[in-house]
Simulated assay, not measured.
Amino acid sequence: MAETKVLPIKAEDASLEDSLEASREAIDVPSPSFKGRLNLSDFAFSAPQTQSLRRSPRSLTPRVEPSDSSTSLATTPKLEALSSPSPSSAPLLKRRTDSSSSSSPSKKPRTPAGYAPPSKYAHLNELVDILEPNLLCVFIGLNPGVRTATEGHAYSHPSNRFWKLLYSSGLTTRLMKPSEDRSLPKLYRLGNTNIVARPTRNGAELSKDEMDDSVAVLEEKMRACKPEAVCIVGKSIWESIWRVRHGRAIKKEEFRYGWQDESEAMGKPVEAEDGEWKGAKVFVTTTTSGLATNPTQAEKERIWRELGVWVDKRRVEKAAEAPEVVGGGAPEGALLN
Results as ranks from 00 to 15, higher is better:
Ala280Val: 13
Ala319Ile: 13
Arg245Gly: 05
Glu220Ile: 05
Glu219Ala: 11
Glu254Gln: 04
Arg314Val: 14
Arg305Phe: 12
Lys313Trp: 06
Arg223Ile: 05
Leu291Gln: 06
Phe283Lys: 05
Cys225Lys: 00
Pro295Ile: 07
Gly234Asn: 03
Thr296Lys: 13
Glu264Leu: 10
Ala272Lys: 10
Ala320Met: 13
Gly275Pro: 05
Glu219Met: 06
Gly327Met: 09
Lys235Ile: 07
Leu291Cys: 14
Glu253Thr: 02
Leu307Phe: 08
Trp259Val: 01
Pro269Gly: 14
Val244Cys: 04
Lys268Ser: 14
Thr288Tyr: 03
Phe255Gly: 00
Gln260Pro: 03
Lys313Ala: 15
Ala319Arg: 13
Asp312Trp: 08
Met222Phe: 01
Lys252Thr: 02
Ile241Cys: 13
Val244Ile: 09
Ile250Glu: 04
Glu276Gln: 14
Glu306Ile: 04
Ile237Gly: 03
Pro269Ser: 05
Gly327His: 08
Thr286Asn: 11
Lys313Arg: 13
Phe255Asn: 00
Glu239Leu: 01
Gln297Pro: 15
Arg302Leu: 08
Phe255Arg: 01
Glu253Phe: 01
Ala249Asn: 12
Val233Ile: 08
Lys221Leu: 12
Glu220Val: 08
Lys300Val: 10
His246Phe: 08
His246Tyr: 12
Lys300Ile: 06
Trp259Arg: 10
Gly258Tyr: 12
Gly308Lys: 04
Thr293Arg: 13
Gly290Lys: 09
Arg305Gly: 09
Arg302Thr: 07
Ser289Gly: 14
Ala292Ile: 12
Arg302Val: 08
Trp259Thr: 02
Ala322Tyr: 13
Glu254Lys: 00
Lys251Cys: 01
Lys221Cys: 05
Gln297Cys: 15
Phe283Leu: 03
Glu239Asp: 09
Trp259Pro: 05
Glu301Lys: 14
Gly267Lys: 01
Gly290Arg: 00
Trp304Ile: 06
Glu264Trp: 08
Cys225Trp: 06
Arg315Trp: 08
Phe255Met: 00
Ala265Cys: 10
Val325Ser: 14
Lys268Asn: 13
Ser236Pro: 08
Thr293Glu: 14
Gly247Gln: 10
Cys231Leu: 04
Thr288Arg: 07
Gly279Met: 15
Ala265Trp: 01
Ala298Leu: 02
Tyr257Arg: 12
Lys318Met: 11
Gln297Ile: 11
Ile232Lys: 04
Met222Gly: 02
Val284His: 03
Ala319Gln: 14
Glu219Cys: 02
Arg245Ile: 02
